[in-house]
């Protein structure tokens, strides 16, 4: 005799499952194991992991480091924001604040950098256009990610965490030069990215 979900089951309802249910439960279980295993596997073999090194940082201390970084490697200015060209392998900084990404970064293709992300006021969201790479930027925390730009171009950093009424105006820029470009050479005019890639 069968019961529905609205009636009390008959005594002794702890019965063996149907064969079809057993098959499905096995398939689902194996699949869940695959879902789990893919994450450690990608840490070993994959090139994209949100690990980084993470530390607490006072917003004002972070701002001071960014200022120092900008003074050291400044090569120009775009829309009133300094352009900074740090050497490959160095620590680079991107600061979120209402409603600006500071500074503009100028990087070399295929070089590795340690990108420090933090905010000096509220939460912001790092979204790299057009590659769709996303990280949460939280005030009080320094998220240091090693990044390797694998393609040259003129990229944008969209803020994708609501940060107040000017949120939509918060748009930053990362320029990636082809390998071998001299640091200090002319900065390309702000092209509209996305079209050529």
């Amino acid at each position: 005799m069968h019961t529905t979900g609205v009636t009390s089951p008959l005594a002794g309802w702890w019965k063996p499952a149907h064969r079809s249910e057993k098959i499905w439960a096995t398939v689902a279980f194996v699949w869940c194991m695959v879902l789990f295993a893919m994450m450690p596997f990608w840490h070993l073999k994959g090139g994209q992991n949100p690990s980084g090194t993470r530390a607490r940082v006072e917003p004002e201390a972070f701002r001071a480091r960014v200022t120092e970084f900008v003074e050291e490697y400044r090569v120009g200015e775009a829309s009133g924001i300094p352009i900074v060209a740090p050497p490959p392998g160095s620590d680079i900084y991107l600061m979120g604040q209402m409603w600006l990404w500071y500074p503009v970064l100028r990087l070399q293709q295929d070089a590795e950098y340690t990108l420090h992300l933090s905010s000096v006021d509220v939460n912001h969201g790092f979204n790299l256009y057009p590659f769709n790479v996303n990280f949460q930027v939280v005030p009080g925390y320094d998220y240091a990610l090693s990044i390797t730009p694998t393609e040259a171009g003129d990229f944008r950093v969209v803020c994708n965490e609501f940060c107040g009424v000017g949120h939509h105006a918060m748009l930053g820029r990362i320029i990636v030069d082809p390998p071998g470009t001299q640091v200090g050479s002319a900065v390309p005019e702000a092209a509209v990215p996305g079209g050529e890639s």
Partner: peptide, 8 residues
């Protein structure tokens, strides 16, 4: 995911 910048 494998197409985007290397990050870790």
């Amino acid at each position: 995911l494998s197409f985007v910048w290397k990050v870790g």
